[in-house]
Amino acid sequence: MSLLEIKGVSKIYGSLKALDNVSLTVDTGEWVAIMGPSGSGKSTMMNIIGCMDKASLGEVLLDDVDISKVSSKKLTEIRRDKIGLIFQQFHLVNYLTAVENVMLAQYYHSMPDEKEALEALERVGLADRAKHLPSQLSGGEQQRVCIARALINHPEIILADEPTGNLDEANENIVLDLFRQLHNEGTTLIVVTHDPEVAEVAQRTIILDHGKLVKEVMNENFNSQNAAANNSGSQENGISDSGSKKSAETTEENPEAKKEKAEDNGRKADAMKARGKTRKGSKSKK
């Protein structure tokens, strides 16, 4: 089942087409990377998918709702309920502690719950930093708070714009490992990146140039790679991934393979999602 369907979307700023007739389908539970040179329209696309901006032309179906047509109030609701955001600049509120930053997302979504927020921080390995202000945290730690904030409301889709852009290798691996976990739980991930290593751990890479979708690359080894990563643990991920780099490249139009992959992943994702829900359910009982 496709969670996101972009049909002939353009975003026009005066004479500039930041997005030019882009079409893209993302299935539930899929992990997609978006690459492309600076100014190619990646952030513009993320803003449109993230319900923070509207397409000038075309249709954007998120969960079968055309978000290019709804009111901005409705957009706010969809954004709140379905989307988790991760930014290159982290965007933590500088006068709130780590745990308060996570609770902020709960506050606008439903009910702030400090215990649950602490659990989310624990999950990203920051239990002992919960009472620190962003200025007292390293970049990697801040990005993990940002991830905890993005996942706290169990969004259907997590959008990450250059999540590792400000991080070193070690922290990048921690973040990618968290993405793997989220993916395994069935969360749909769309990650914008300049870093091929970050793109290669995704199932599929989309390349934008001058607002056009110019290339789509499937990661053939995704499953084995993912399994290997799970076995070998976070620190070695970067190394084990590098071995499969070259084989990952497949050229654009390969609809059959893509379809197969999608189905496979879709099934898996549904199972994961169900598991995730159970986890969520059992948690709320506590």
């Binding site: 706010t76 309920d81 997302a105």
Partner: peptide
């Protein structure tokens, strides 16, 4: 402004 943008991105209504 950034904080406001972030709060809105997190789903804050104008009212809140």
């Amino acid at each position: 402004r950034k904080e406001i943008g972030l709060r809105k991105a997190l789903g804050a209504s104008n009212k809140s």
